[in-house]
């Protein structure tokens, strides 16, 4: 309040807070107090929730850096006294970390690119073209969003166990159907036909985005003699780069941590999410058979924390770099019905 004094117009006499408070019969004080209290509680609430979200990560980080004796020392709660990276190397060895990381990375990138490429085409088709049964097909997209993979997992499982296209394969393979279980081809097929993880959502987001692009852009291209695909490729796609990137980021992250489709289709590959989900029992096994010693629950938990961190760390890195892209994709695509 003091700062404003110099900028005040002539004829106005600045008064102290208390005189102004008196003149307003205490209203000013009440208002100030209320707003301060509100700000304080807001800070408290936000701090608490941020803590709630970040705490597990920080907790895991501190545990993963502890030596075993620190675990049993009750005077140590958060900051490790004997810092070690031994846990990381044991876990890395047990889950074939670098190999799994490499596999996971490539599969996630490949799947994300395939899925988003297909979804972009479909999203554009829904946003810009009028064709018969359009409503029906869009209802199908909504159905894809709603139908959980669990419902169809049984029959997908059987379908790829005895894979056949109109009986053709059976004909050439001595009456035996092809066993595609354990191969990743089905999943790539599903990715390129928009049936992967949460692909309905990407179609929806991209359609929302394309609907918002001014139609005059395309009309100008048509007038200049571009055909439909050319227009899409040269005019619309460059416009849509941000939303496509963020859809890919989502696809990448969700594929990275996915266990459902991975278990069903990608069992043959050493994948990080699969390796990490079995880490606890594997570590216990390693300690009892290789080293001949039992392992305490706390230590087992420590290895789980370490493995989780190793799984999440690359994603956190991606998130740090591309945070805006994640958040704003949802904002700009305007998830409105």
């Amino acid at each position: 309040m003091r700062k404003q004094e110099t900028a005040l117009p002539n004829g106005y006499h600045p008064q102290s807070f208390w005189t102004r408070n008196k003149r307003s019969h205490g209203y000013l004080l009440k208002r100030e107090a209320r707003s301060k209290a509100y700000k304080f509680f807001r800070f408290l609430l936000l701090f608490a929730i941020c803590f709630l979200i970040l705490h597990p990560v920080l907790d895991k980080l501190s545990i993963s850096l502890m030596e075993e004796r620190d675990l049993y020392d009750s005077s140590i709660t958060t900051i490790p006294r004997h810092v070690t990276t031994e846990n990381y190397s044991i876990v890395a060895q047990q889950i074939y970390y670098w190999k799994a990381l490499f596999n996971t990375f490539w599969i996630s990138v490949l799947v994300a690119v395939l899925q988003v490429a297909a979804c972009t085409l479909v999203g554009y088709g829904f946003a810009r073209f009028e064709f018969p049964l359009k409503k029906l097909w869009f209802a199908a997209v909504v159905l894809v969003i709603i139908v959980p993979p669990q419902t169809i997992s049984t029959s997908l499982f059987l379908r790829f166990r005895y894979f056949d296209i109109f009986g053709l394969i059976r004909l050439f393979n001595n009456g035996e159907a092809l066993n595609l279980r354990g191969s990743s081809i089905p999943y790539y097929l599903m990715s390129i036909t928009c049936m992967g993880l949460k692909n309905g959502l990407y179609i929806y987001m991209l359609r929302q985005f394309f609907s918002g692009v001014p139609i005059s852009l395309e009309e100008a291209a048509y007038v200049d003699g571009c055909n439909t695909f050319h227009t899409f490729w040269k005019v619309i796609l460059p416009e849509a780069v941000p939303i496509i990137v963020s859809c890919m980021l989502f696809a990448f992250v969700w594929q990275w941590t996915d266990s459902f489709y991975s278990k069903l289709f990608l069992g043959g590959n050493t994948l990080l999410s699969m390796e990490v989900s079995g880490i606890s029992d594997r570590i216990a096994n390693y300690f009892s058979t290789q080293l001949g010693i039992g392992i305490s629950l706390g230590r087992r938990n420590q290895f789980v924390s370490t493995a989780t961190l190793m799984l999440v760390a690359p994603l956190l890195l991606v998130y740090l770099v591309a945070q805006r892209s994640f958040v704003e994709s949802i904002a700009t695509s305007g998830m409105k019905m």
């Binding site: 085409l121 479909v122 088709g125 073209f129 064709f131 097909w137 390129i192 928009c194 049936m195 439909t228």
Partner: peptide
């Protein structure tokens, strides 16, 4: 209409 169908063809097949 035909180009529209071509664009959403991947989805139709997958669906």
């Amino acid at each position: 209409a035909i180009s529209g169908y071509l664009f959403i063809l991947p989805f139709i097949l997958g669906f």
